[in-house]
Design a protein around this nucleic acid. Structure first.
Length: 596
RNA sequence: GGUUCCGUAGCUCAGUUGGAUAGAGCAACAGCCUUCUAAGCUGUGGGUCAAAGGUUCGAAUCCUUUCGGAAUCGCCA
């Protein structure tokens, strides 16, 4: 049992025996003791005073005495300002390390493959433009939260929903037809997604130009925006697409394939993948059918122009369009179909949508609609909503071209890592290939950690002029510690020293104890990260333990320790720390280098 | 205007279900490499936790109001 739980349980017992009261375990609060005070765990006794009918000092003393007598793990206690501080024996800590030293999955729960699936939908790119920093956050959060849920024993399936149809795609198609015929990624020497994105931006430019011209000729703004010729043409393409027009479908297929090739490259570089990929083009008809059926049952209503709507006024939301007046689908149409299809495919226990907070309203509406349609799985849908990535002058917008491109950013990070490493000049024993791999690991790690260490629901501000750090609370700092520990074990191989079971009669110093306390916390952190959908908790935890370890490393000899029992213990301690670094980073989707 | 989220050091962020004197990194300054990797370690300075009320033995944390910022309320996705 986890030590804090054991202490809490015995505290309840103390209250029962001393004050003859059965109380809820919630009022027992076992906290880590403040760092500037002596002790390992603190029990707050104020809530017990109404049972003990004594002052805080007396109560704490009595409970402390009870715990001390009852638990061999507790070697002493002290009462300060009404707080009961407990001292844990070195024997317990060493035994604890012994007990987990061979456990490679320390902190993880076993996954029950037979349990119902938890679906995590993430990435969900549009196929009309390349990925930017905002998508990076989505990809990292989605991947990481999936790993964290797996570590919590969940049967996770990662799915992607590719937004491969819709008016936005038609805009790229149109612009390419108008301005890019007989050009392709190959002869333009561009990555497929970048190539297609170029035409999307081109469309927006032309559209703006047309609107401006119309405004000059006295057309009201609203009308100009609605009736610009190029927009009408794009809408015509959408109708053709939904009517299976061969020419359009062929172009669409070709352009999407260019984009997929580009995305695959980016995904691969980022180290993420999916168990299954859904395409909107394969689910929107299902959504359309559901909408039309529901219209027949009067769950939805039709306006005079033939557009179909759902009335959400009773739910304090605005009416929402489900099919356009020309019969084509909107975004939410396919979302209805996709949810339905997925439930058929997986009979999931839960489905988590990793989607930015700009779509909070969309999901509220979606849930209401699915509720009206009587789909029982609605209550198992969860929108994991995360904050935006902001640039100094505001939000990133693909349309305006104000984005930090994912591929560019990863490349820049790589160059920086390379520069730093070459200056330090420590990798002379490694081949060019190995060095490249290390630069990849540290640069990608820095980027991923930079994003993941922030609480998901908060916005991130990113200034492209200020580069992402490689010192301090960063992945390279943590990876460096991993590499250092690795180096210790490489040096150990040259010695004639074999590690054996840890002697439990050692006297530990404060740093060693602090590290053990942190290790003791790891399972709880994994649990909390899963419960709160927060990779940030893992990131900040691993930073804490690494900081603690570095202080230890700086002050206390390991290989140079003369006492072989201490040396043996410190090696085990170091090994465990390196295992936790690696494991925690795996949960974040970050690799660790063998050296750096 | 309605709804949701956010506001902690100059900057970027931590701060567990309310616990003791609010913590890191960056930036600034001062130190530590004949000793296991200095992408490290040590120290100094830096705060009205947006503001005001309330609940509580105890509030950065919970409640109310106000101020500031963001998102959203599309026949975009």
């Amino acid at each position: 049992m986890i030590l804090e739980k054991l202490i809490a349980k015995n505290t309840l017992l103390a209250i029962k025996e001393l004050y003859k009261k059965n109380v809820n375990e919630k009022i027992v609060n076992v906290l880590p003791t403040r760092k500037d005070l002596k002790g390992d765990f603190t029990i707050v006794v104020f809530p017990f005073l109404r049972f003990s009918k004594k002052n805080a000092f007396e109560t704490a003393k009595e409970i402390g005495g009870f715990l001390f007598a009852k638990m061999e793990e507790i070697k002493d206690f002290e009462v300060v300002n009404g707080f009961l501080n407990l001292f844990i024996s070195d024997f317990y800590w060493i035994s604890f390390l012994n007990s987990i030293s061979k456990n490679k999955n320390f902190g993880h729960k076993k996954t029950d493959e037979k349990s119902k699936a938890i679906l995590v939908e993430y990435s969900s790119p549009n196929t009309n433009k390349p990925l930017h920093l905002g998508h990076i956050r989505n990809n990292l959060l989605g991947y990481s939260i999936s790993q964290i849920l797996k570590a919590n024993g969940k049967n996770v399936k990662m799915v992607n929903l590719v937004n491969d149809r819709g008016i936005h795609i038609c805009k790229s198609i149109l612009a390419w037809k108008k301005f890019g015929k007989n050009k392709n990624p190959k002869n333009s020497n561009l990555k497929g997604d970048h190539f297609v994105g170029k035409y999307y931006v081109r469309f927006e430019k032309e559209y703006k130009k047309e609107v401006a011209e119309m405004l000059e000729n006295g057309v009201p703004e609203k009308e100009a925006k609605k009736n610009a010729k190029i927009l009408l043409e794009a809408q015509e393409i959408l109708r053709k697409w939904e009517n299976n027009d061969k020419e359009i479908i062929d172009i669409w297929r070709e352009m999407n394939n260019w984009v997929y090739k580009g995305f695959d490259e980016t995904y691969k570089k980022m180290g993420i993948y999916f168990d299954k990929i859904y395409y909107e083009s394969e689910t929107y008809l299902r959504g359309k059918k559901i909408v039309l059926d529901a219209l027949n049952k009067n769950i939805f209503f039709q306006k005079n122009d033939n557009s179909i709507w759902v009335d959400l006024k009773k739910d304090k939301l605005d009416d929402k369009i489900l099919l356009r007046s020309d019969g084509t689908s909107v975004y939410i149409t396919q979302d209805i179909g996709t949810a339905n299809l997925r439930f058929e495919d997986y009979d999931f226990e839960k489905m988590i949508y990793v989607v930015g907070n700009e779509q909070n309203y969309h999901f509220k509406v979606l849930y209401k609609i699915l509720e009206k349609l009587n789909f029982s799985y609605v209550k198992n849908l969860k929108h994991f909503s995360y904050g935006m990535v902001e640039l100094p002058d505001g939000k990133m917008k693909s349309r305006e071209g104000t984005v930090v491109d994912a591929d560019d950013l990863m490349k820049e990070m790589f160059e920086m890592a390379k520069n730093i490493s070459e200056k330090l000049d420590k990798l002379n024993d490694f081949t060019t290939e190995e060095k490249k791999e290390i630069y990849e690991i540290t640069s990608l790690g820095a980027l991923k950690y930079f994003i993941l260490k922030v609480d998901p629901k908060k916005n991130i501000s990113f200034d492209p002029k200020e580069s992402i750090d490689f010192n301090g609370n960063t992945a390279p700092f943590i990876q460096y510690t991993y590499a250092r520990i690795n180096s210790i074990f490489r040096n150990l191989e040259k010695e004639n020293f074999s590690m054996s079971e840890i002697n439990t009669n050692l006297k530990l110093n404060e740093k060693e104890k602090e590290i053990l306390k942190k290790i003791n916390n790891y399972p709880k952190v994994i649990f909390e990260a899963g419960k709160n959908y927060s990779p940030a908790l893992i990131a900040n935890y691993v930073y804490d333990i690494v900081k603690e370890y570095n202080q230890f490393y700086q002050k206390i000899p390991i290989l140079k320790e003369k006492n072989i029992f201490l040396k043996n213990f410190r090696l085990f301690l170091s090994k465990k720390v390196s295992e936790i670094i690696k494991d925690a980073f795996t949960l974040l989707g970050i690799n660790v280098p063998k050296a750096m």
